[in-house]
Design a protein around this nucleic acid. Structure first.
Length: 843
DNA sequence: AGCACGCCGACT
DNA sequence: GTCGGCGTGCTC
């Protein structure tokens, strides 16, 4: 190019100074990507999937993920330069990016929202404004008069080179100090800067070891002991050290040292002796970075031999995988699905692929993790909602680096950075908790898993004892493979299920409050046999509400259109929707009567009454209220497992994934509210729940017993539960779904309109329904209608349901039209303060 | 989501 | 007369 060139370079080799641009995903709910210019020197460093730092707006510095690198300068604006490259290697893989884009499209949310949900917050850098002294400021030459607050800040900055705004707030005991900062800026005493803090902190342990001088040979070591002969405390420490680190056998062991707290936590050793040894240079202290997931030794674990039925099912799954990407494993409770999963995972691992094993939150217990740990050792990663953020980052990085080849995790594990995934298992496939409700992205992990598998070229195995109607439909239609396991594993037999008609029993005066005599006797019998009982009641708290006997007054939540639940332990009335609580009044605020009584019952009341009925029984309750603390859930399960508890009373939580050997009786206290839930899936859910709870009874050869209390024993669903007649349920349900246009025959998109006042909410909903009808036709749009609970957190709600035929052409276009209609509505000043939540495939 | 710019009430 | 309230709109 330059005329001075002495020889001609082939045109292709002329280094062209290309200007590159990066489209980035900001961690904000913005509809599009933003384009930044890549500084020339960084051309090679910026990678798709890596994080970069950009300035967004006038102040904020944000970390974001690069989605695309290209050479097209934006036409309508001048792109800013990106500031910095954070990652040398991508933290988000290509198939992951593709998946995120699919999620944003399908679930009608922004990529930013997906990224926000996906990245552990420690990977989301954020800037925080900090202040420091102005470089030119000299206190001696300062001529400005300073207020007390200003002096305080100045003093603070002498202690610490910079302060965050939060720190300033604490320092001054003020929440609003803008003026003070402004004044100091004006006087050129301080400057403001933005600092990005990496939030992930590797775990560091303090270790100690002998100073190198003493480890040259054994003689030196002996010499040291002689010197310390008169210092027994210090000698103790050294002896312990040598005991734990056998230096006498191998001097090089000293290098790795010993965790300091192994010594300091020993009550027989003196802390000050340790410190003296360190001070005198006998011991030295150092830090090491360790994993939060210690390397575990694998085994000893002998894979259980699969039964003939299990092996046949496994082979059948593999055979289907030859032609189909997805297989549904319908295996009755206790048929040993887990062994089949482990077998398949092992095969996938041996072939070098990554595996994701999804479980619903409550089913992911220590039991299953321990089992997998024994098989896969340190190649198993666990992803749980109770993990700390640092732990999440380590799982994330462990998958990126390939350390974890198998991941067992909950819903959000679908966000992890897999590369080369070959198998996904979705256990308890029918579980509604795979669907996220709040906030966006409102995804269903089961559906995401299927797309994910597609992008990775992986196979998916969905497993359930009571498959969702949708999944079963897909299997019967031939889209997926279907494998059925109808034999219980081992000697387990199906439980014997019995209905108790509480209305009849009530007339016969056979009810002790909420317990039928039959149930009480069965519990007593079971306890006599030293066996255990699970009681299920689908409602927490003491009572769903209280009312006044005289004037029928019922306490309501001030923020939501619900009555307040009574919690006896705290003597509170509590809203289960917004968390509002108030003290339970002693007499009626409306009429002054003291006749306030509870209506209905929850787990707390069952626990209470049972304690009175059977004072000698050891009873434990497991529900949201008793499992909030980090390890309480685990503790309750362990106590029950180890027979420290006789009766476990609980909500949904007691129904999932737990295998207790000694449970021989399960009681369902009130089946009716579950069946009569106003939802097209109510029967399906009820069936799943009853079968699942029943499955807790009688494993390992003992036939269990299940008692279901109901006021309406003639409900056909009970017959199906008792006969374990899944096909009967399926056929009835699928017919109804077709007749009334529900999934799997249509797709549902639910729009919830929210407004702080009732009327405007209604008006906006009507307008939106009209706009949607104009676009999609009247057949597709239902509503608006106020939901049963029409106000939550002071927002009035209205719902519109869109039903789209499976074959209704361009889904993408329809979704675009929906988004457009919503956008226009919220833009319209007439409907200000209106919010619309879009939920695709609501559960 | 922030944060800036812009138009109306209670205070130095 | 200003400080500061939060309502709309933009951010590559």
């Amino acid at each position: 190019m330059t005329p001075e060139l002495e020889f001609q370079v082939p045109i292709d080799d002329v280094p062209e100074r290309v200007t590159l641009f990066a489209d980035v995903i900001l961690p904000l709910p913005l509809p599009k990507l933003y384009t930044y210019r890549i500084p020339y020197e960084m051309n090679d460093e910026v990678l798709v999937g890596a994080r970069v730092l950009v300035q967004f707006g006038s102040k904020r510095v944000l970390s974001c993920v690069v989605a695309r690198i290209h050479e097209q300068p934006p036409a309508e604006y001048q792109a800013k330069y990106l500031l910095e490259v954070i990652d040398e290697k991508p933290v988000v893989t290509e198939p992951q990016l593709k998946l995120f884009m699919w999620m944003a499209d399908y679930y009608l949310c922004t990529l930013g929202e997906v990224i926000n949900a996906a990245l552990p917050s420690a990977l989301k850098l954020s800037s925080e404004s900090k202040i420091q002294l102005h470089p030119n400021f000299r206190e001696e030459t300062n001529e400005w008069p300073l207020s007390g607050h200003e002096m305080a800040i100045l003093y603070g900055l002498k202690q610490k080179p910079h302060l965050t705004f939060t720190e300033v707030g604490h320092l001054l005991q003020l929440t609003s100090f803008h003026k003070i900062i402004k004044s100091l800026l004006l006087k050129e005493i301080i400057i403001i800067f933005e600092e990005i803090a990496e939030k992930y902190a590797p775990k560091v342990v303090k270790k100690i070891r002998l100073s190198p001088a003493f480890t040259t040979d054994e003689a030196t070591l002996e010499e040291l002991f002689n010197q310390l002969a008169a210092k027994p405390k210090q000698l103790d420490v050294l002896l312990k050290y040598i005991q734990l680190v056998p230096l006498l056998q191998d001097l090089s062991l000293n290098e790795a040292g010993l965790e300091k707290n192994l010594i300091t936590s020993n009550p027989h050793l003196s802390l000050s002796a340790i410190n003296t040894l360190i001070k005198n240079g006998v011991l030295e202290q150092f830090d090491t970075v360790v994993s939060r997931f210690p390397m575990l030794e694998r085994g000893p674990y002998v894979m259980p031999e699969l039964s003939t039925a299990q092996a046949a099912a496994r082979d059948s799954v593999l055979e289907y995988f030859g032609e189909k990407d997805t297989v549904l494993l319908h295996g009755i409770t206790g048929s040993g699905k887990t062994e089949i999963y482990i077998d398949l995972i092992q095969k996938a691992v041996e072939a070098g692929g990554q595996v994701l094993y999804l479980l619903p939150e409550i089913a992911l217990t220590a039991q299953i993790v321990t089992r997998l740990k024994r098989v896969f050792g340190d190649r198993l990663g666990v992803y749980h909602s109770k993990f700390s953020d640092n732990e999440r980052v380590e799982v994330w990085n462990g998958i990126l680096s390939g350390r974890f080849q198998v991941v067992i995790g909950v819903r959000s594990s679908v966000f992890l950075p897999f590369h080369g995934l070959s198998l996904i298992i979705v256990d308890e496939e029918h579980e509604p908790s795979y669907k996220q409700h709040e906030p966006a992205p409102r995804y269903n992990a089961r559906e995401v898993a299927l797309i994910m598998a597609q992008y990775h070229g992986a196979k998916t195995l969905l497993g359930s004892a009571t498959p969702s109607i949708e999944s079963y439909y897909h299997s019967l239609s031939g889209r997926w493979g279907l494998v059925t396991l109808s034999e219980r594993f081992g000697e387990a037999t199906l439980p014997q299920i019995e209905l108790v008609d509480v209305r009849q029993e009530g007339l016969k005066k056979n009810m002790l409050s909420h317990f039928s005599q039959k149930l009480v006797h069965a519990i007593e019998d079971t306890l006599h046999k030293k066996e255990q009982v699970i009681l299920f009641q689908n409602r927490r708290g003491y009572a769903p509400f209280i009312d006044c006997n005289e004037c029928a007054w019922i306490p309501k939540c001030r923020n939501c259109a619900v009555s307040l639940s009574y919690h006896k332990f705290s003597n509170e009335l509590r809203c289960h929707y917004c968390g509002y609580t108030e003290r339970k009044p002693n007499d009626c605020p409306a009429c002054g009567s003291t006749m306030l009584k509870t209506v209905g019952f929850g787990t707390e009341k069952i626990e209470d009454e049972l304690k009175l009925l059977l004072p000698q029984a050891r009873i434990q309750r497991m529900d949201l209220d008793t499992t909030k603390k980090k390890n309480s859930h685990q503790q309750i399960i362990e106590d029950f497992e180890n027979l420290r508890t006789d009766v476990l009373v609980g909500t949904q939580m007691v129904t999932k994934g737990l295998d207790f050997e000694h449970v021989s009786l399960v009681g369902i206290l009130s089946a009716d509210s579950i069946i009569h839930f106003p939802d097209f899936r109510a029967h399906e859910r009820a069936f799943q729940l009853f079968v699942q709870v029943s499955g807790r009874a009688g494993r390992k050869g003992k036939a269990g017993k299940v008692l279901i209390q109901t006021a309406n024993p003639n409900q056909p669903i009970f017959q199906k539960v008792m006969e374990n007649d899944y096909m009967g349920l399926y056929e009835q349900e699928i017919a109804e779904r077709q007749k009334f246009r529900y999934p799997p025959f249509v797709r549902i998109i639910q729009l919830t309109i929210k407004h702080p006042e009732a009327r405007p909410a209604e008006n906006a909903a009507i307008a939106l329904a009209k706009a949607l009808t104009d676009r999609l036709g009247p057949k597709s749009v239902l509503g608006p209608e106020a939901p049963h609970i029409f106000k939550i957190r002071n927002q009035f709600l209205q719902e519109i349901h869109i039903k789209l035929d499976r074959d209704s052409g361009n889904l993408k276009l329809i979704k675009q039209q929906i988004q457009e209609a919503v956008f226009q509505l919220v833009q319209n000043k007439e409907f200000k303060n209106t919010r619309v939540v879009i939920d695709v495939d609501p559960a």
